[in-house]
Design a protein around this nucleic acid. Structure first.
Length: 474
RNA sequence: GUCCCCAUCGUCUAGUGGCCCAGGACGUCGCCCUCUCACGGCGAAAACAGGGGUUCGACUCCCCUUGGGGAUACCA
């Protein structure tokens, strides 16, 4: 017990679609656990289903992990490429009498299931070839190889999340480890790969919990050490049903496109199903320092956008203005929202950065920042939204006309200069500041909502500001 | 059908027999701040699924019921 092996975790997605949020979280947990223990975090692509695996999906998985900031160690392992090794193990099992050829046809299997179902008996293979002599093999039938699993006793999966899970061995039938076409199946491949890769801790979705029992038996048959297991409950949708593609399960790329920050995603995902006391907001470094398997919850959780948004808003407010500006421009352009030929030159970027502290204060996502920055891109004469139009009634326009000379006379154009002038004006007119500020805001931004109006005017610049105000004055 | 897992506010969760007539966070609702909206501050409503045990004492341990979820493939 003294020579503790280095911790090795892995993330093993099958490339049949984008990297969904549940996968992202398991990857995060595995990554955190490896980093926490100065171990390695490996990536294995389970591409043995040749029909459904695609290169695009593999790329999406890489992209998703990179965006989440989950760098894996070493080379990526492709399971399909290791077929020969998997078959080798199957043959070893065969040699040791721990596996056997089974000539049962799919039709027979089907009948077996029908019958079992009709009689209300458990649906599983009856082991008809388990002890039969190979000489009885029918002509021309390509056999599968089945694992000879113990019939008596029980298999215990010691799970860090679920505790000890016991399976009666009679429940576990002899599973196929090599198909009739000679290709190995999942349960064999995972065991061989995890063993060969030196994986010490398997952290994965709890839909694999029953597999863990079967896999434990294979480890035992080969005389290999069984790794530590941690089966994490799945994430459900807002309606409580399993988060699936039909249920609006989204790829991590979708979250990026919605303007969420990776640091916020990491924080949110870490907190979803895992806890460190009452801590809600913590950095990735803290998560690495704190992460453990014992505080992963056992019950499934639901994905809550409202909380993610709140967290994202927090990280946006914390983030550097320049970085935020650049990321927003990148996102808006990639999404085609700002592809209208509007200026994205250094001038716009500078204005965006200057206005950022005010804009990010009221943004929950990068998309919100984009929206909040519209007033910087707007061209005269400004289009007014409904609220702004309502604000700019005849009285307000007259007020702006009276205000204009005051503004023209402002010496500097810093927010403080403008504010002082406007406050004096309001006082002279015997008006509350709001009565002047709102029409001003409507004229300057075309909206009833914006960052503090004097900041807005300052970043807009003297000429542009006065122009916009004159446009609405009457 | 069979097997396995789960069950605290609407949601994420703290809680590992007495510190809990249950704490935090998001959301919701008030109030304050205020040039709008936000941010921020203060406050409120809001939960131990039900029933049996065990115990001097159960949110915490055991059993049952109910309700969710997962697995039962020559998919992974």
């Amino acid at each position: 017990m003294t020579d503790k092996k280095q911790v090795v975790t892995r993330f093993a997605p099958s490339p049949t679609g984008y990297l969904h949020i549940g996968g992202g979280r398991t990857a995060l947990f595995s990554w955190l656990y490896a980093r926490r223990n100065n171990g390695k975090f490996l990536l294995r692509i389970e591409d043995t289903d040749r029909e459904r695996s695609t290169d695009a999906a593999i790329e999406a998985i890489f992209e998703g992990l990179r965006w989440l900031g989950l760098e894996w160690d070493g080379e990526v392992t492709y399971q399909f490429a290791r077929q020969a090794r998997h078959r080798e193990v199957a043959e070893e099992l065969l040699r040791q009498g721990k596996a056997y050829y089974c000539y049962t046809s799919p039709q027979e299997l089907e009948e077996m299931r029908e019958k079992a179902k009709a009689e209300g008996r458990p649906i599983r293979y009856d082991g008809r070839w388990r002890d039969r002599d190979p000489s009885e093999a029918p002509e021309g039938v390509k056999p599968v190889i089945r694992f000879k699993s113990p019939n008596e006793g029980e298999t215990i999966v010691r799970d860090h999340v679920m505790g000890d899970v016991r399976f009666a061995n009679e429940q576990l039938d002899d599973l196929i480890i090599v198909r009739s076409d000679g290709t190995p199946t999942y349960n064999l491949s995972v065991v061989v790969d995890d063993h060969d890769m030196g994986v010490t801790h398997i952290i994965r979705g709890d839909d694999h919990l029953t597999n863990a029992g079967r896999q434990s038996q294979i480890y035992a048959a080969m005389g290999w050490d069984v790794p530590e297991f941690a089966h994490v409950p799945l994430i459900h949708g807002p309606d409580g049903a399993k988060l699936s593609k039909r249920h609006g399960a989204l790829g991590v790329d979708a979250y990026r496109d919605m303007g969420y920050l990776p640091e916020a995603m990491r924080n949110y995902l870490a907190r979803l199903g895992w806890s460190h006391g009452d801590d809600e907001i913590f950095s990735t470094e803290q998560a690495i320092g704190w992460f453990d398997l014992d505080h992963i919850g056992r019950s499934p959780s639901r994905f809550d956008f409202a909380k993610l948004e709140n967290l994202n808003g927090h990280y946006i407010r914390e983030k550097d203005d320049t970085a935020l500006a650049d990321e927003t421009i990148e996102l808006m352009q990639r999404l085609g929202h700002w592809a209208d030929g509007g200026n994205f030159g250094t001038e716009f970027r500078a204005k965006l950065i200057a206005a950022m502290s005010g804009i990010k204060e009221r943004a929950k996502t990068l998309l919100d920042i984009g929206k909040g920055a519209e007033f910087l891109r707007a061209k005269r004469p400004l289009a007014l939204d409904a609220n702004a139009a309502k604000l700019l009634d005849a009285d307000a326009r007259a007020l702006l006309a009276r205000l204009t000379p005051t503004l023209e006379a402002v010496a500097g154009w810093a927010a403080g200069d403008i504010e002082a002038a406007v406050r004096n004006f309001a006082e002279a007119e015997n008006l509350k500041l709001g009565k002047v500020a709102q029409p001003l805001r409507a004229a300057a931004t075309g909206s009833s909502v914006s960052p503090p109006i004097f900041d807005v005017l300052a970043t807009l610049g003297r000429e542009e500001s006065l122009g916009r105000i004159r446009d609405q004055a009457a």
